[in-house]
Amino acid sequence: MNASFTITIDNQSVEATPGESLLEVCRKANIPLPVMCDFKGLSPVGACRLCLVEIEGVPKLLPACTTLVAPNQAVHTQSDKLRKYRRMIIELIFSERNHICAICVANNNCELQKMAYELGMDHVRFPYLTPVCEVDASHEKYVMDHNRCILCTRCVRVCSEIEGAMTRDVMGRGFDARIITEFKQPWGDSTGCTSCGKCVQVCPTGALTPNDAAQGRLKKNPELVALLIEKREAKP
């Protein structure tokens, strides 16, 4: 085990162990950082760009989720620029598909919504792009509404890394990228899906939901998956 060292985050000394990411260190030290794509225990991808931080001596902004700690690092998680950029990023997410909370089953139980409150989004400056996306209700227990999907790929990762079923991936690219089940089949037709529902639990929006959830009544339990990951990581 390598010896730990201290780094400073927002002028506060924090202990860090080699190999840890800045996000992990922030979590341990209760320093809040906004994240959308990251989920504890799944491999980090650095896609949502909300956890970008400033590191002294580094010219570019780096995502805390994929940046490893290094001795003498001086990190700043809150600056006017970071706040401005984070706010714009969350607005871009809301502008991309349909995130009308008023008629979403995930209303009041939605990480995306909570994040937008957190970042003080009172309106979206960018025009809504309103693509028409599919709603796949073919599964006996769950629904996938692509209109609510933010492409965080948590479902892809939990399916391959934790459940090991690898039924999900991303197809296409850019604005046309979509989450797919196997050969872009109806979820209900999937021969590889174990219906374990982990993807539904970790989905941060109303994109993946149980099909019996009424508007605003949805309860998701991502902690259950987090706990499961922890148990699996622990050596017997």
């Binding site: 892809v156 391959s160 690898m166 039924t167 197809m171 797919i180 196997e182 050969f183």
Partner: peptide, 12 residues
């Protein structure tokens, strides 16, 4: 190779 990955590659 998982089906979803092949489809993802073909469409990428």
């Amino acid at each position: 190779v998982p089906p979803s990955r092949i489809y993802g590659v073909v469409t990428f």
